[in-house]
Nucleic acid binder design. Sequence first.
DNA 1: GTGACTTCTGGTCAGACTGACTATAAGATG
DNA 2: CATCTTATAGTCAGTCTGACCAGAAGTCAC
Lengths: 230, 230
Amino acid sequence: MNTRLEAALAVSTVIFALRSDPGSGLSSLWLPLVRRTRDPYLGRWALPGGGLPTDEGLAGAAARALRETTGLTPKYLEQLYTFGDPGRSPGGRVVSVVYWALVESGEAALAVEDENVHWFPADHLPPLAFDHNRIVEYALWRLRTKVEYSRIAHAFLGETFTLAQLREVHEAVLQKALDPANFRRTVESSGTVVDTGRRVAGVPHRPPRLYRYNDSVPAAEPGALEPAIG
Amino acid sequence: MNTRLEAALAVSTVIFALRSDPGSGLSSLWLPLVRRTRDPYLGRWALPGGGLPTDEGLAGAAARALRETTGLTPKYLEQLYTFGDPGRSPGGRVVSVVYWALVESGEAALAVEDENVHWFPADHLPPLAFDHNRIVEYALWRLRTKVEYSRIAHAFLGETFTLAQLREVHEAVLQKALDPANFRRTVESSGTVVDTGRRVAGVPHRPPRLYRYNDSVPAAEPGALEPAIG
DNA sequence: GTGACTTCTGGTCAGACTGACTATAAGATG
DNA sequence: CATCTTATAGTCAGTCTGACCAGAAGTCAC
């Protein structure tokens, strides 16, 4: 079990944030990619990541890659899958432990973006390096599945939020409209949010209540294993 | 991404089979462990596994470890999680990609067992090497969660089976009794099994129908990622 | 100030689903 | 044939969900 092995080990992260679509004005999922500066796939876009320092945990390495490329801190971080088919990387076996992360939308708007870091709409990606298109597809599936039964949507929002904002997150992730009244009923009965007593002022209609996330309700997560951040 | 790294890479497998409990006569979950023949944890029981050959996929390595230790072929095999905390292995960083597998019960009764391979009841394990107790706990959680929404229970059974046998699998995994009539209603409406038209003969009561697994109904699985075997 | 407008928020209603339970079917066994 | 055991069908009430209705409560135009 302690044999030194031939395969190289890497940690990558699929980072999601909500941004409003230039066309429709609706929010949708975006993710940052980095341009490869080496062969193989020189010049192609790829998931941020890198090697695994000896003294760092897997989740720590994922969070660091995220911070180094985007300057952001994830509000949610969880292991996705480990990809290790021989042949997924031309020129040497690479085993990639992939994490997925959610970052706050307001913060994400300020994220680093330059020649080598660029945000793309998650549903319309160019051909990426390695098998990264497939990895993003799987991460999207996982996000869309999990948002329905777990309480991760608030990771896209700030400290306090209205139920309409929370609903818009769900709508953006699931790509379908939700009935406001039914959504409210479901969320309220789940106990995942708490009324702060405050309301939003200055809106040209009835002012909505502000809620905050309820930390005391445990997520429906594995007994022995929690998300790294969440 | 192609840097040679310091951490060693290993693949381990949590293998589940059903066996009848000596005491109660009821079926329960058992798993095979191997005795460590080297330090660290010399003499302790551990999950079967080993290094990753250069030309072999992760799932392939998991299936091979399973075959080599138990002589069995898994009817279900899926990646569980990758454990890589620094310090989880005394004497050198090890990153373990862990799979979980289900094997047919009839076949499992014939499995290899000797001085260095032994089957244990999954709920009463001795202290294992490394963090393997925690890994088994997580695999158990995953099995128990997944058996309720996915159709993996048939992996414990043979080609054809009665609904009572399928129900007993669920009862053994979930550790609670299920109403036979309600179970039948749920399974039949799910379309996951097909009536073979045959019945079991020679039982001292009304003969039950024999069903087989319906391959044509797709599992509720990731779009981009399937279980290795299932 | 007043009415129009918009979203918030509370409520109803019907159909689907679930757990508990009852009853009949169909074989073996003595 | 009576009896026993499990298989299998059906009922009923409570819960959950999607579709929909209606009043509440602000801003804004006039």
